[in-house]
Design a protein around this nucleic acid. Structure first.
Length: 647
DNA sequence: AACCTCTGTCATCGC
DNA sequence: CAGCGATGACAGAGG
């Protein structure tokens, strides 16, 4: 029978990963332990593009999607385990391997990953799993004998789906490596050659199966061990789609049961509902059939009602990269609405603000992604919840630095040229009152006029009329009073019979002043006094302007303090919201963790006690299911890699 | 009387 | 070099 082109060769594995992510099983568990996955496969399979038309049941071996000889290995392994009297009856190949390796005390090399310490651990786990029980009503009465029979049948030659350079070749290689001692690379190279490789692998498998049936028990055990080893290698690579089918088909009591979306772990549902509480039905079919990326798929439930995915096709792809992009921060967080306007985001702290936020928040996201096994992209979706209160686009009404016009250069200050601050004439500013401000948030926008009017030619701007405080007011009020108290210079000028007023002397232009001195006959003392009066007068105005500028600088600095404090408060509020979101995510992670562990079943269908097993995330991206005793006893490095998935 | 603020003045610097 | 503005420092007036 000519088999169709393996559809996983054209992106099927991506669909697999997408599906696993959708069902919240990014952690690569032993999938045969998870009946809902099989159910989900059954439901989602029609949406894969090149699914063979004849394969109405992908789990059926008769359609060419049959099981590999891995399953007989499992059967024999189970048989051995049962013969060893291990109380914990494994339901999966991995469990069988674990129990077998422990019970046989093979603690070295590949088999001894658990170590001797694992013996009691697994035993306890098995007992506790039996004792811990869970729901006895869910107990599956799956006789091992029937399973073994089925697996023995599965030892028959089955057509291996060719997969040029794919996982099929790896399996073929695995199956034949013990009997033929074929080099991996050469085998893979052969498989890449197409039909000839397919025929070769088939012949090798036949030979091995013949060996399996005809070999002695010792040989069979060696083969089992070899397969266990190869299974480790195989699991080191990844979990192929066909393997999934085979494992699922090895447990017919699970493969066809309970096909419903409800079997999907609640993680995705919670995510979608959190994004849009009104949307309760997850359109998984749409998510899959559209061949969307994971980000969009997880947002489909909300995109249909909230956003138009086509409106921002690029935003959904690399939000984190865009977020760190200094060019378009408003695009960086399209769905988030932090309480800062986009322009203010640029104006205020700009990239530093975003960087600080990113380093805190998205480090947290990345950490969470590490902890959960979800990508930061997926984790980030949780923060797009509209009810999270985290908003990047919501307007943040604060006085910005740009409005403060904190420019202290001489041009804006108007210092050069001797300008008076016009508003100061009409608005008496009590600096002590303003200085009493200690960063209260109710600080107002202060418009400081830094322009100082020219003194020259402006008689009202003289020292006598300048209404600053105290003495100046007294002086200005006595301008036209002949009995007013004269200033010292006025008194001196009056005593020296200077024919000009002090105001004229001070504010007269230099040329006019010089010509005036030349036109009148004046003694040297008079000229000296006139020059001193002019000098002191000008210096007095200059001192006033200087003090005014100094005051304005102080006021501007206080405004800056006010603005910065307001921003600080806003950032604190923002941080609080992010912390809430992180806590929400942490709780979801906790729930997901227990949800995954609760889906594990022992041989009697009872849930595995989550208190005895743990998901261990290693640095290389693998996720291990290990007994907690091993984790706590510090044998992490000896823990066998039950399953792994590489992102 | 002590303290503070305001103002004027001087000395100095830089343009 | 003179003129001028800016500014620190000081002193006196006034509160």
């Amino acid at each position: 029978m000519k088999l169709p082109k393996p559809w996983w060769a054209s992106g099927g594995l991506l669909h697999l990963r997408l599906l696993l992510s959708l069902v919240g099983l990014r952690v690569d568990l032993d999938l045969c332990l998870l009946p809902p996955v099989a159910a989900l496969w059954e439901e989602l399979l029609p949406f894969f593009p090149t699914r063979p038309a004849s394969a109405s049941n992908p789990f059926s071996a008769s359609e060419g999607w049959g099981r590999t000889p891995l399953l007989p290995a499992k059967g024999r392994l189970l048989h051995e385990v049962r013969a060893l009297g291990v109380p914990f009856i494994p339901r999966t190949l991995v469990d069988a391997w674990l129990v077998h390796s422990v019970a046989t005390g093979d603690a070295d090399g590949t088999h001894g990953l658990l170590g001797t310490a694992a013996s009691s651990a697994v035993g306890d786990g098995g007992q506790s799993a039996s004792a811990g029980g869970g729901d006895p009503g869910e107990a599956h009465s799956s006789p091992l004998a029937a399973e073994e029979e089925e697996e023995e049948k599965a030892a028959e030659p089955t057509a291996q789906v060719p997969d040029a350079g794919g996982r099929g070749s790896q399996e073929t290689e695995v199956l034949s490596e013990k009997s033929e001692a074929v080099d991996h690379s050469s085998q893979q190279k052969e498989n890449e050659e197409g039909v000839s490789a397919q025929a070769t692998s088939r012949q090798q498998r036949k030979r091995e199966e013949n060996k399996m049936t005809g070999a002695s028990a010792w040989e069979a055990e060696k083969i089992v061990e070899a397969r266990n080893e190869s299974h480790l290698h195989w699991s080191d690579t990844s979990f192929s789609l066909e393997d999934l089918f085979q494992l699922l088909s090895s447990q017919p009591e699970h493969s066809l049961e309970g096909i419903s979306v409800e079997d999907i772990p609640p993680f995705l549902s919670s995510v979608c509902e959190s994004v849009n509480p009104s949307v309760h039905n997850i359109n998984l079919n749409q998510a899959i059939s559209h061949d969307v990326n994971l980000h969009e798929a997880m947002l489909l439930c909300s995109n249909t009602s909230i956003r138009d995915p086509s409106a921002r096709p690029s935003q959904a792809q690399e939000p984190f990269l865009q977020l760190n992009s200094p060019t378009s921060p408003q695009q960086a967080i399209p769905a988030m609405s932090l309480p800062l306007a986009n322009n203010q985001m640029r104006n205020l702290t700009s990239q530093d603000l975003l960087y600080d936020l990113d380093s805190n928040i998205f480090d947290g996201l990345n950490l969470m992604s590490l902890a959960t096994g979800f990508s930061p992209l997926e984790v980030s979706q949780l923060f797009e919840e509209p009810d999270s209160g985290v908003s990047l686009n919501s307007s943040y009404n604060s006085t910005s630095l740009t409005n403060s016009n904190c420019t202290f250069d001489g041009t804006n200050l108007g210092a050069v040229g001797g300008c008076y601050p016009e508003p100061r004439k009409h608005c008496h500013v009590d600096h002590r009152t303003i200085s009493g401000f200690h960063g209260a948030l109710e600080c107002h926008q202060v418009f400081h006029d830094h322009t100082y009017h020219l003194q020259s030619g402006v008689p009202e701007a003289t020292s006598e009329t300048f209404t600053w405080t105290g003495k100046s007011q007294k002086i200005s009020g006595c301008l036209d009073d002949p009995d007013r108290n004269l200033s010292r210079d006025e008194e001196r000028a009056k005593a020296m019979h200077i024919p000009f007023s002090v105001d004229e002397i001070v504010h007269m232009p230099v040329d006019s002043f010089n010509s005036m001195l030349s036109r009148y006959y004046l003694t040297d003392s008079q000229v000296s006094l006139i020059r001193d009066i002019r000098r002191r007068g000008k210096n007095k105005v200059a001192a006033q302007n200087c003090r005014k500028r100094k005051l304005d600088i102080i006021l501007n600095l206080e405004d800056d303090i006010c603005n910065l404090q307001a921003k600080k408060e806003a950032l604190k509020s923002e941080q609080t919201q992010w912390n809430k979101a992180i806590n929400t995510m942490r709780q979801k992670l906790y729930d997901l963790y227990h949800n995954v562990l609760n889906r594990l079943r022992d041989d009697q269908g009872r849930p595995v006690n989550p208190s005895h097993y743990a998901l261990q995330y290693s640095h290389d991206g693998t996720i291990l299911i290990v007994p907690k005793e091993l984790v706590s006893s510090g044998h992490k490095k000896e823990v066998p890699k039950v399953k792994r998935e590489r992102n």
